[in-house]
Nucleic acid binder design. Structure first.
Lengths: 207, 207
DNA sequence: CGAAAAATTAAACACCGTTCAATAAAATAA
DNA sequence: TTATTTTATTGAACGGTGTTTAATTTTTCG
């Protein structure tokens, strides 16, 4: 049948992705539907499948975009705490990072949760884009952790950074899914920040 | 229509729960289906809805059972490290707890993940059973954390324990969903244990 | 036994992801 | 230009889901 005059393949992919991202933000992972995305952009379901191949690949593309937004958001948070200003202490920048992790998740709950709600069927490998965007995000943390540690400890920064991301992730998850509220915890961000500070100090950081 | 001779209401509820749990363990949250559970126990879907009211309440019941199993598993792990034996040091018991957290999740991935995959629609409150079973699990950790801290720090044990559970949860999640593998981390358990030890030391524990 | 109560069913509804022959439009060839 | 090939798009069909409900069966009890 026919090529439409108003969208080439590239534009169509971008259109689906943009609307898919919006729908995910509004509806959340559990209620997300590829049919609904198709309806919203005025194409039929089949077209979506021609472009993305499957539901899973569409979700992965949406999540990849979320990683991109997230990394940009964190860099923006850090830019408010410049290295050379009065508030340039590594502690401040680390705190800004933890706070940024939490506030991105809080202000974009559905798209943030979708990253962890979705799991690829076993055997299907992650697209390269996904791994790369995720690595970018991790690199930001590695860089800041390395800056907080004494120069001679730089080698351990990557492993420690990954571990601290997991620490913050755990706290953020419990904050957003109600686990902390259920158990009586009222300030998850403070708890996460404290745990990160302790581990950095144990690794030799002077905070 | 009629009451069957072979199951009263209580037995039927237990039957559904047992088969539901089994199905969740085999299929995982994404492929779980109440219709499939009904088919397996030889009842129709309607009966399931008469007993549990909705899909969500069935899932919550399954997850509540998982919390119960999990707490029992952890107590069993701790029993292998008795308080009064040669290996009675709090550090050993804390390590056993972290290891138990990981190994339960690893050996029961689907039912463990289902706890965090499922989210109640907003407005519907958690059943009391769920909160209670979850509190039991947390109490185990609070008790061990308090034992690791100096007596005068006992008051902070509950908050610290919740935070350490979040820390371990984050590491366990990243270990099981492939995040750590993607980022090159090869020993999540070691990382989690190290973070917990650091935080306990910072709180005054002599490990 | 017969009537009231309770339990169970099966069909219907509105969704979902996925596939695929038919079709319409664009690109190319004659 | 017209004819043909290639490409993009569709919409119906399939088998699945959670959920509701009228009809039906079974049990209970007077």
């Amino acid at each position: 049948m026919g090529r439409r005059s108003d969208h080439n393949r590239e534009e169509l992919e971008a259109l689906i992705l943009a609307e898919g991202h919006r729908h995910m933000a509004e509806a959340g992972f559990a209620k997300f539907s590829s049919r609904e995305v198709a309806k919203r952009i005025g194409y039929s379901v089949g077209t979506l499948y021609n472009v993305f191949g499957s539901y899973d690949r569409l979700i992965v593309a949406i999540n990849t975009r979320t990683f991109h937004l997230w990394a940009a958001y964190l860099e923006h948070c850090l830019a408010s705490n410049p290295k050379d200003g009065r508030e340039s202490r590594p502690e401040t920048r680390i705190a800004a990072l933890v706070e940024g992790y939490f506030s991105f998740a809080r202000e974009n709950t559905n798209i943030w949760m979708a990253i962890y709600d979705h799991r690829l069927p076993p055997g299907i490998p992650m697209p390269e884009d996904y791994a790369r965007q995720r690595a970018v995000l991790t690199e930001v943390v590695v860089r800041e952790v390395a800056a907080a540690l004494p120069p001679e400890s730089g080698a351990i920064a990557p492993r420690l950074a990954r571990s601290l991301v997991a620490t913050v992730h755990g706290h953020c998850t419990f904050a957003l899914n109600g686990s902390f509220a259920l158990l009586g915890e009222t300030d998850p961000l403070e708890m996460a920040t404290a745990r990160v500070r302790e581990s950095l100090r144990a690794a030799g950081a002077r905070l």
